[in-house]
Design a protein around this nucleic acid. Structure first.
Length: 594
RNA sequence: GGGGGUGUAGCUCAGUUGGUUAGAGCGAUCGCCUGUCACGCGAUAGGUCGAGGGUUCGAGUCCCUUCACUCCCGCCA
């Protein structure tokens, strides 16, 4: 028999009445009636009410024991009278009459209570993460994460994928995020990098003939944190398949995600087959390549309106003449919204650094007219044209902004979210997935004016490219795709370029000559020239999937031991200083910043 | 690197126009209480008001600087 327990704290039922049992766990809560003491004993599995009274010689000692002390109780399972049954816990029909107890682990005064629904400052939660993790909600989130990962792993194996580990110490790559570097003791002056993703390795696995690979892969990027982005490390379901086209990858991932989300959430899926939206369409209609499709609002381009003679909104007309565009959002039946609704949105837009959002409402009093501060600048005919372009009717309102394309996309995308939320148009009980496809291969860096890879340099360009196509590299599309859910980017992937000559060509457009490519990507480019299968894959973010399933807005709520915004682990005290000897051994010296 | 928010007891927070000794709930300690499940009742302890400087007869409150945490922008192929 186990020394500590015969049952866990969620096991005892009516059938166990009169049994002599032992339980071990944490003292979750005490209710001390002076001569009668109730103790809720908690472990990973649940809670059992235990009871002792003054007749027992241990009563006075137990009365003094602190919350969160780890104890072992020996006692008898006894019945609860009908009026004292607790339906909120699984063991609520019985309780344990304590005979003896033993303290297994003492507990000092708590810096944060474990038994409480209160919110606490993150700093203290992270410092005492082991206490925080005892609390119900986050404890369940972490268990959910474990179950989701097991489920995914199981599904992947059923689909014929093999799981492989790839190196954590690898080489720095010139593209992408900032690397975490690790000095090499045996190779002075040289550094490993932690992988931003096992990108090259998974392609090499395909070249090695393994056909279908997956891994719950740690990825390391030294970039600043956000609510949905941990600093340091995160996990991806990294997968890659040989002899596939884009649609084959879509099939696998779509089924996997639909099954996973149906298994672990009661929320409805808006689409069982994810709609496919081209990058260009997404940028126009949603101003973003991660649109929240729960939000029905759509952005329209009405630049043309401002070239008409019967429109006299001179500020916009002038800007349009010098190359700016005008885009708008139409809201349904908002004519009765108070003035403050419109002004708040305009004010909000100014706070976002835009020049504001102009607005008016289509109204009819015998004749069609636009109500609002700028309504008078539009003729009836112009209004009809706007209604046509935006699919609006009388009673609807138009919010518009004017600017350079990129700024305009940004502010209208934010405005779409803001107005959608303000109008209550977003159903929180829905998951709306979509694919974003047809990403451009290259984009122009606005600062340097250089052509750069817009996403992954290893992606396969679309079409049979002739030399002529390379004269306009910005027009080349890639077999590159993202999955988005409720406005959160869940993953990105691509069909890879497995043809070395084509790879050199594309890299040359981004300003890398053959020698540089050979140096930087030696492992890959070399491998591709020894018989590489066509292949492609994707890498859904595990943390964000669990975040959506757990209905959390912050990734730290589904991460066991996260770092804070400054990439510090407050519990383990990382990063920390190292000794002179350690630095010397690594041939390192550092300069103080000043 | 930049912008916003927050910082008062171990924890969560209140603190009016600048005005006497800075409060509450939970937790801790002590006492009372035999059916609670957020048990109840009474008492006690617990504070460099994030830090530094300034204005003022007087600063938790106003001003400046700075630190920490957080959200956002940049960044994140």
């Amino acid at each position: 028999m186990n020394k500590y327990r015969t049952h866990n704290c969620n096991e005892l039922r009516k059938e166990d009445l009169d049994k002599n049992i032992s339980l071990s766990g944490w003292i979750n809560k005490k209710r001390d009636h002076g001569n009668l003491l109730f103790i809720d004993l908690r472990d990973n599995y649940g809670i059992t009410q235990c009871i002792i009274d003054k007749e027992n010689k241990n009563f006075l000692k137990l009365e003094k024991v602190q919350l969160e002390t780890v104890v072992k109780f020996e006692g008898k399972v006894v019945n609860r009278s009908n009026d004292t049954i607790n339906k909120d816990i699984d063991t609520g029909e019985v309780e344990v009459a304590i005979n003896t107890f033993e303290i297994l682990g003492t507990c000092k005064e708590l810096p944060i209570p474990v038994f409480s629904d209160q919110e606490y400052a993150e700093e203290i939660r992270l410092r005492y993460r082991f206490l925080d993790l005892r609390r119900k909600k986050i404890h369940e989130n972490i268990i959910l994460r474990s179950k989701v990962i097991s489920y995914i792993r199981n599904e992947m194996m059923k689909l014929g994928f093999l799981e492989f580990q790839t190196p954590i110490l690898t080489s720095s790559s010139p593209e992408g995020a900032r690397d975490f570097l690790v000095p090499s003791r045996l190779n002075p002056g040289k550094f490993y990098a932690l992988p931003q993703a096992p990108q090259q390795f998974k392609q090499l696995i395909m070249v090695s003939g393994f056909d279908k690979y997956f891994q719950i892969a740690p990825c390391f990027r030294d970039e600043d944190a956000r609510a949905d982005r941990s600093p340091g490390e995160f996990y991806q379901l990294d997968l890659e398949m040989s002899f596939v086209e884009q649609e084959d990858v879509f099939d696998v991932v779509e089924k996997l995600l639909v099954n996973t989300f149906k298994e672990f959430s009661n929320k409805k899926l808006m689409y069982n087959q994810f709609p496919k939206i081209s990058y260009a369409d997404a940028m126009l209609k949603y101003g973003s390549d991660k649109p929240d499709l729960r939000n029905p609002l759509i952005i329209n381009d009405i630049t043309e309106i401002f070239t008409r003679d019967d429109v006299s909104f001179e500020i916009f007309k002038k800007l349009v003449k010098s190359g700016s565009k005008v885009r708008c959002i139409s809201t349904t039946n908002t004519k009765d919204k108070p003035r403050s609704f419109f002004d708040n949105i305009d004010k909000w837009a100014k706070e976002q650094g835009a020049s504001g959002l102009a607005y008016f409402t289509f109204e009819e009093k015998g004749d069609l007219f636009a109500k609002g501060p700028i309504g008078k600048f539009f003729s009836k005919e112009a209004l009809v044209e706007i209604m046509k372009k935006t699919n609006s009717k009388v009673g609807d309102s138009i919010f518009m902004a004017c600017g350079k394309q990129r700024d305009l996309e940004k502010i209208t995308a934010q405005a779409r979210d803001k107005i959608g939320k303000d109008l209550g148009l977003i159903d929180d009980n829905i998951f709306a997935f979509c694919w974003i496809i047809d990403y451009p291969m290259f984009e122009r860096n606005e600062e340097t004016n250089k052509v750069e890879f817009s996403h992954n340099p290893f992606s396969m360009p679309q079409g049979n490219l002739s030399d002529k196509d390379f004269e306009n590299p910005l027009d080349i599309l890639a077999f590159q795709y993202d999955i988005v859910c409720n406005g959160i980017e869940l993953s990105s992937g691509a069909i890879r370029n497995h043809i070395p000559e084509l790879m050199y060509k594309l890299f040359s457009i981004a300003g890398y000559d053959k020698k540089q490519v050979d140096e930087k990507f030696s492992g890959m480019i070399n491998a591709l020239s020894y018989g590489a299968p066509p292949h492609g894959g994707i890498a859904p973010g595990i943390d964000r999937i669990v975040m959506l399933l757990a209905n959390e807005k912050n990734i730290r709520e589904v991460t066991m031991f996260p770092m804070n915004q400054n990439a510090q682990d407050l519990m383990m005290n990382a990063p920390s200083e190292v000794t002179e000897e350690q630095l010397k051994e690594l041939n390192l010296a550092y300069k103080t910043k000043k």
